[in-house]
């Protein structure tokens, strides 16, 4: 028997128009990486300002960040940068790709699918609640902004404090029309629970009871687990977790499929990614999920 290929590195593409809050979000995620080695790819360093206190060094166009994270700019060569990431030692646990302000994150996610050793598990789009509708009507960038929104599996609504409650509510109604596929969540000053993007940490099953609420991570978010002692129809489970109206906005876990193969299931908003899973009895048969309360509006 040949050695199993390493699990593909999960990739989340982070999109959104200029000024929407992508940089704030990424700094927040890096600050709360919690031991995960995150590799951030940015179009160019000009578009993101990594907080200075997170930077430990710079060499050959790669910033070394606190906690074993790295950040590099890919310029015109996304595929080359992905290639380089695969060769990093130690391998990153996760890759975040920040698209340019006019980039189309869905197209980037599909391109990740061409790179071996990496899997795009979702597209998170940050949208500025205050300016979103004006941008979407802009003569030059309106169609670009709408495409970005439609690309989103998970839509993180930022600057709701500036927009005010009424506008935020109106934006959510509007979003249901223009981006019906996306799971929409409201962030707090550009900060979302890090696990919402990075994925829940996998914990030993013994520590968790089925369906238990293990943490109140944020006012509107609940976290819990589902256990599966028997093989499960992973495709059906993925469909259930991403069904319209599902309150689950992020999930991650390893289960055994009906054919006996081990699978890693990741849910980001309304997208599920299923990849082969290496043996790891510690986390077998356990899906950790994050749900968002139905919005009061």
């Amino acid at each position: 028997m040949t050695a199993a290929a390493p699990e593909p590195i999960p990739v989340v593409v982070i999109g959104g128009y200029l000024g929407a809050g992508k940089t704030t979000l990424i700094n927040h995620l890096l600050r709360h990486a919690g031991g995960r080695r995150i590799a951030v790819l940015v179009n160019d360093f000009g578009e993101i300002n990594i907080d200075a206190d997170l930077i430990e060094g710079a060499e050959g166009g790669v910033l070394s960040l606190a906690g074993g994270c790295v950040c590099c700019a890919f310029g015109a060569d996304l595929m080359g940068a992905l290639d380089d990431l695969r060769d990093l030692d130690p391998r990153p646990d996760m890759v975040l790709i920040e698209t340019s302000g006019v980039g189309l994150p869905g197209a980037v996610a599909r391109s990740v699918g061409l790179a071996s050793g990496l899997t795009a598990i979702g597209v998170a789009v940050v949208a500025d609640a205050e300016t979103l509708r004006a941008r979407a009507a802009d003569r030059y960038v309106g169609d670009t902004v709408l495409t970005q929104l439609r690309d989103a599996d998970l839509l993180l609504l930022s600057k709701t404090d500036l927009a005010g409650e009424a506008e935020t509510a109106a934006v959510r109604v509007w979003l249901a029309g223009v981006a019906p596929r996306a799971a929409v969540v409201t962030t707090d000053h550009g900060r979302a629970p890090p696990d919402l993007v990075l994925g829940p940490r996998e914990a030993p099953p013994a520590a968790l009871a089925e369906g238990a609420v293990v943490a109140e991570t944020h006012a509107h978010f609940r976290t819990g687990v589902r256990r599966f002692s028997d093989p499960v129809d992973v495709a059906a489970l993925a469909a259930e977790l991403t069904a319209p109206g599902s309150q689950i906005v992020r999930a991650k876990g390893a289960v055994t499929d009906l054919d006996g193969t081990r699978k890693l299931l990741q849910v980001v908003g309304r997208r599920a990614a299923v990849t082969a899973r290496a043996d790891d009895p510690r986390t077998e048969g356990l899906i950790v999920w994050i749900a968002v309360d139905p919005h009061p509006h």
């Binding site: 060569d77 996304l78 595929m79 980037v108 599909r110 391109s111 699918g113 061409l114």
Partner: peptide, 26 residues
């Protein structure tokens, strides 16, 4: 493979045409 820059043949495999930098560069 599911990418707008990678047309597939009847066999479900890429025809060999690779369109746009992301598909071409590798």
């Amino acid at each position: 493979i599911d990418h707008p820059g990678v047309p597939l043949g009847d066999d479900g495999l890429p025809t060999g045409e690779l369109k746009g930098p992301e598909a071409m560069i590798p």
